[in-house]
Simulated scan of single mutants.
Amino acid sequence: MRQRIFPLLCSLLLLAAMTAIAQAAPSDIVSGIRKRYDSLQNFTATFEQTLTHKESGNVEKRKGTLRFKKPLLIRWETEAPTPETLVVTEKEIWDYLPDEELAYRYPPDLVQDSRSIIQVLTGQSNLDRDFDLAEEGREGGLRKVRLYPKDPSPQMVEALIWVENDYLIRRADIIDFYGNHNAVRFVDFKSNSGVPASVFSFTPPKGVEVEDRREKDAVPERELFN
């Protein structure tokens, strides 16, 4: 009887240990991401973005570059299929649409929410405070983690991130209230590459119409980074 009970007991103990490791994994990822991005002062990345509209089934693919510098300076330039430049500073946000010869000016608080895709992609979201996490194994060599906002917004009811072994976020997929997906994948990533502050300055070209929407409770003409 002892010979049968011992292997069974070992199996149960091993299963319990594996379960504990699986439950602890998101905490390990959270602390790893926090430490990694605490040491990250800036980065430059090229990205591929896929926007999927659930109701119509339409899929739009974009590509461009992202430059980031702490605390939250952003230059997001979409190159194709339609050019767009988004510049985030401590004082304002610029959304420049060259083909329309139009630039919108917004207050910076529009991107200071942890549930913003740009906060997630740059590792600035407060994961342990604002989300419940569930690890879903590996995909393409990356650790896959599902995020559930504790206070969902129409722009994010669920999200996925894919994390490298060095705890850098390489992919993210933001799902909104309507089931639409905003998926971004970094093709190339260079950390602490010395991005100058001048990259994050923006002056509308001559002849471009400017719509200033920095007043309180401003609503973007279009969802930023989407």
Rank of each mutant, 00 (worst) to 15 (best):
L110S: 03
S193V: 10
W162H: 00
S191E: 14
R34F: 01
T44Q: 13
P196I: 14
D217L: 07
N182Y: 01
R146C: 07
V87R: 01
D28V: 15
F202Y: 07
F47L: 06
Y96L: 03
G64Q: 05
I74N: 01
R115H: 12
D130G: 06
D38F: 06
T44L: 07
A134L: 15
P152T: 08
R129L: 15
Q23H: 05
I117D: 00
L40P: 05
I74Q: 02
P108R: 01
M156R: 02
L97D: 09
A24F: 10
R171S: 10
T50A: 05
T203D: 04
R138T: 15
P204G: 02
F202L: 01
R146F: 12
V30R: 05
P204K: 02
P220G: 09
L12E: 14
P154T: 09
G179Q: 04
F200K: 08
R67W: 08
P205I: 14
R214Y: 07
A172Y: 00
Q155W: 06
I21R: 00
R36S: 08
R129I: 11
G140C: 14
I174S: 01
F200S: 03
V30P: 00
L72A: 10
D28P: 00
P204Y: 00
E77G: 03
G57D: 13
L97E: 11
M18W: 00
N182W: 00
W162P: 00
V111A: 09
Q23R: 10
R2S: 08
I33T: 06
V30W: 04
